[in-house]
Amino acid sequence: MFDFLQDYDILGAFWTTIQLTFWSAIGSLVWGTLLAAMRVSPVPLMRGFGTVYVNIVRNIPLTVIIVFTSLGLFQTLGVSLGAKDFTGINFRLAVLGLIAYTAAFVCEALRSGINTVPLGQVEAARAIGLNFTQTLRLVVLPQAFRSVVGPLTNVLIALTKNTTVAATIGVAEAALLMREMIENEAQLILISVIFAFGFICLTLPTGLFLNWVAKKVAVKR
């Protein structure tokens, strides 16, 4: 019953999924943090940019964004992000699209965390002479991050599953392989279960681990 599985590199496909998730998670954490900083900054132009970015990007379907990175950025504008072959180019474009999209959600999670930091913390930081950036970096964001580990876990789990959209531009991750297997084999249910199980293996431990982290780093007031 399971013999046909030997013809496919399922672990390899999931490894690509993990790599997509990993780089997109790092990138969207960085870009999302910058966006959140913009959204609370005293400079109106930055606040405006942050608001417009988040409200546009989070309302576009991810598929449209991923397809645009391939058709728009690569095929029309020739952006290849420094990769030589199609596999590399598509992988990097998918990561770029996932970062652009996920960062909007990271930004909003973080902003709700920033709102939980009492104003007194900011006043105390200013009162000892910290400037805006230092106040944000040393006092507000560390506390904000601790309070949003839970919501960020949700974003990470959603991201893990969203990497399947990269299949639309031919990145050889789990969903692409699943489609190929379903076309070739008469084992629809078994294949679906295998891939569903694969994703649960990725996301369930992540969720449990980060819930534990959330409790551990929570700021006591």
Partner: peptide, 23 residues
């Protein structure tokens, strides 16, 4: 800006609600 931050560093402030950095 910078001048204000520098001035605040020279003026100590103690608040009603302490406002110690919780983390």
């Amino acid at each position: 800006g910078k001048e204000l931050a520098a001035l605040r560093a020279d003026v100590g402030m103690v608040f009603q609600s302490f406002n110690l950095f919780a983390h």
